[in-house]
Structure formats: C-alpha cells, structure tokens
Nucleic acid binder design. Structure first.
Lengths: 199, 199
DNA sequence: TGTGCAGAACGGCCCGTTTCGTTTCATCGC
DNA sequence: GCGATGAAACGAAACGGGCCGTTCTGCACA
C-alpha cells in the first residue's frame, strides 16, 4: 500500500506525485480529527487535499487502507529495555496511551475499529496489527524469561489482555486518563501472576 | 424509547400498532444478521418489515436507538447468587459470553460499538448500558463484602476490566471460545487480588 | 508517447423529510 | 347504544442531497 518505488513498473511516464500522496494523507487525518468518523468520506478527503477521487482510489483500495496508513504513519511507540519487566511494561503502556491520547492516533484507531465491523479487509488489517503488537510485548516477556525474571511457561497473552482492558475503556469512554501509579499497579498485578516465586 | 403507553398523550386517535413495531424489530435483527452492519440501513429494514420509513423514524430517532432496542430485547443474562464470589462471577461470565456467542446479540453489540463511533447518542446509550452492567457486577462484589468474603475497600472496577479484556478480544477476533476452565482461571486471577488474605 | 494528475460527470444507494390517501379508534352528540 | 367526527398512525411514493465507486477528458511531465 503506497510504496515509495514500484519494482514492477512496466515503462516510462510520469511517476507518482509524492506531494499529492502526502497531501491526501494529511487531509485525511485532518478530516478525521475535525469531522470525526461520520464525516470521514473519500469525497471530503479529496476536496480538502485538492485531489481527484480516482487518485485516492488508485493508491488506496478502500477507506480502511487509508485509515490504516494514517495510523501507522504517526506510530512510534517506545519499547524500552530496562532489564526489569515491570518497568518495561509500564514504559510501554505509558508510551502507547499517551500516543492514543495526545495524537490523532486514538481517534484513527477507533475509526478503524468501526470500519472493521463492516469491512472484512479492515478487520483483517486490524487483526494483523494486533498480532504484531502481541509479538512486541511477547518479546518483552521473552527477555524477562531469558533473565530468569519470569517462569518459562507463562502465558504472554496476559499482557495482551491487560492492554485489551484499557483499550476497551478507551473505546467506550474515549478517555484514558490513567496516571503512572494506576498503570504501575495494574502492571504489578499482572506481573505478580507471572513471577516464578508466586507460582 | 418506544414505551408501551404514552402518559403525555394529548388527544384521541389511532394507537401505535404493536404488530408493526414487532415486525420492524424482527426485521431489523434479521437484516443485521444476514447482511451485517454494512447492509443495515433503515431502508432495508423498512423493506423487509413491509413498513414505511416514516413509521420507523417516528418511533426510533436513529439507527442507534433501533440497535439498542434490539440488543436489550434479547438480553437475559443470569446473575447467579451462589454464596461464593468465584462461582457467581464464573456463572455470570458464562451466561454473558454464551449470550454473545449463541444469539444475535454479539453482532448487534459490535454494530452498536461501530455506530457509537459516529453517533454521540449511540455512544451515550452504550456508556449507560456499560454503567448498568458495572453496577450489576458491583452488586455481586457488595454481596461478597457483606459475607466477609472480600475486603470492604476493594475496587469493583477490576471485574469491569476483566469483562473489558474479553470484550476486546471478541471485538477484534469475533470469537469467544473460552471454556469454563479458562474462565475460572481468569476469575480466580482477579479474585486473588480482592480476597482479604491476599492483601 | 506513456503515465499520473485534477476535475467533471455518471448511475446507484441511502439518507432524513415531506406529502399523500387510508385505516384505526377514543370521544361526543344523538 | 350508536353512528359521525377528527386526531393520530399507517404504507407508499417522492423529494433534495450526499457519498459511493467508476469512467472519461484534457493537461503536465518525463
């Protein structure tokens, strides 16, 4: 989706206009933030970007594809490696939630959830993204196992469930105002269950 | 929303046709199940119910209102009182999840989530419903506190978080195939944190 | 000369509303 | 009692408007 170069290019001619692609992505994000998911239409994005609809459809096959690229563009979540599983997880959650809270990513993500309920492609993309994040937190757990900090047979899905409970709250209330102490308590709650000595 | 009697009725005239209301609700559920959220339009519901669109708009101000009434109609979730907090919660979760799994309520609920991302009324209704369920599980905790089974200062929101993590999984994967053992393990995991002796 | 571009226009679906004529039914005069 | 009255709900059709996804045109550029 929207690669920088097309290796299968058949012949010469005009290349993709990067300014146009950029303008479309910026406009899409702006429309989503200002008008919400209800006002997020391809027409509106094209108007705002001063682009033609065919140009959008040429590069993004669906609204979901556009949403997903917006979400992934702004995405840069810390994945600290402090040598301590509790600090790792707290740092990761803090980064993820502030990312949802302080950028447009939160509303983009919620729009993607909505889109996934009617577009199977969006659902698949979302599932893939979720899987990737699981492997991300899974690596933290693996590192902790290698350090002997965590038993080798623990289920890393517990962390996914923890994120899920926060994500659910974010989805229902559109708020995610947990302070660090609350976050740390929740993480410790999970970590208690996977510390070797507690088993 | 769609009360049986209207105390503020100004004058005489034909009453609401209960057959029509019933047909609309049945048709709406059928459309949602067969065509999914993407195919769920007022037009489609009216066609299937052999009803006029104005009749639907007269009684349900929005798509969200219609969705919410469908969801609440089919809703009958057990709230057992076994005298044991762990059994209470496991029973409740089993009932809730089988309800999501085996009736149309699961897809109705997911559609409601999607609708809430673009319709503030749907978001408010959903938040209210969620609050009601929290007070529901909160009563279980209160009973456990009265029995001395649980410390008086525990946070009942832990149960809400537990439900949230399952709901999130259901939303992303459209599956909820937890067996009772898994459910019991999760409940025990939460209950461990609220039993007095573990504090 | 081939390609991407913006823009206009299309047929189609659904939106929410209005208008129409019909049916239902509590009320009131007889 | 009982039929006429009139308010209100009904199904059907049509409206103006928006967005859908697609096609076509003419220009810019390599």
């Amino acid at each position: 989706m929207a690669e920088d170069a097309d290796p299968a290019r058949k012949s010469i001619g005009a290349r993709r206009n990067p300014d146009s692609a950029e303008a479309i992505l910026v406009a899409a994000e702006a429309v989503l933030v200002e008008a919400g998911y209800a006002g997020f239409s391809i027409e509106a994005v094209a108007r705002r970007a001063r682009a033609g609809k065919p140009t959008i459809y040429r590069w993004w096959p669906s609204k979901a594809a556009l949403l997903l690229e917006i979400y992934q563009r702004g995405k840069r979540v810390d994945s600290p490696d402090t040598g301590n599983i509790e600090d790792d997880l707290v740092g990761f959650l803090k980064s993820l939630f502030s990312h949802w809270r302080e950028t447009s990513s939160g509303s983009v993500f919620r729009s993607l959830i909505a889109e996934a309920q009617s577009d199977p492609a969006a659902a698949a993309a979302l599932a893939g993204y979720s899987k990737g994040r699981h492997s991300h937190t899974g690596q933290m757990i693996e590192r902790a196992k290698a350090r002997g900090e965590v038993a080798v047979d623990v289920d890393a899905a517990l962390v996914a469930d923890l994120i899920g409970s926060f994500a659910w709250k974010h989805l229902l209330t559109n708020r995610l105002d947990e302070d660090e102490a609350t976050l740390r308590r929740a993480v410790r709650y999970v970590v208690q269950g996977i510390l070797p000595q507690s088993r």
